[in-house]
Amino acid sequence: MAERGFSVSRLPGFSTVAVMVFVALYLPIAMLVVFSFNSGTSVAIWEGVSLRWYVSAWANEQVKEATFRSLIIASAASIVATTVATMAALGTTRRKAFKGQTLIYVMINQPLMVPEIVTAVALLIFFATIKVATGYQGLGYLIAAHSAFCIPFAYLPIRARLEGMDYTLETAAADLYATPWQTFRRVTLPLLMPGVIAGMMLSFVTSLDDVVITLFVKSAGQDTLPTYMLAQIRRSVTSEVNAISTVLLGLTVVMLTVFFLLTRKKD
């Protein structure tokens, strides 16, 4: 393509690299999706369109169980994480600096900084001790662990929303005879809602995606969808995994689209 005039922001070769990067990012995912509809068992040779892998995944008891378990954990964890993160955001945002502020920030963002494998190992040791002591083997451990690492993902969009909020709106409510609680319920919370929903969706997606921590925390027979898939990939029986991946992928894209629409700034 001929250069049309001199563009200051153009740098040689950059556009080519960028286009290649986009292709490289999407080609593997696209192939994975395409071959989930393959009627054959190969992931490289196309044999015709079929929904057989979706049907077989749907019929697979283990997949059903794992899916159900994943959804329970993700729902519980995202509700817990969003609730406590909303409170923390209200506590730490739009305030004069106070003692221990940095400590709270570091604690909340800790799951983003510490490598997952380290947290996973720590939880393995800790929960193993509790499992022995109490005899309880249920999903509570996974829900607690997921809640914890989802907190920063819920906290960040809520905090961003709060920071962008006009403080005078609450002042105005107080001026118009609203008590602090009425101000919160009628003004702060409704205005915060898009941030809360965004935070909840990000936590949900984050919980649904987790492999490492789940792998170390789960008791026997508590596979979630990702840990089930990981086990399947090792055994090389994979076309069913393509189908599950495609569904998960679709779910993520839908959630993200909603998230973007919610957090988009009005111009």
Partner: peptide, 16 residues
């Protein structure tokens, strides 16, 4: 600030 952050800090202390 601390009171509102307490539940989050509790979850994080126990599970992270």
């Amino acid at each position: 600030a601390w009171a509102l952050s307490a539940p989050a800090l509790l979850v994080l202390t126990v599970a992270a």
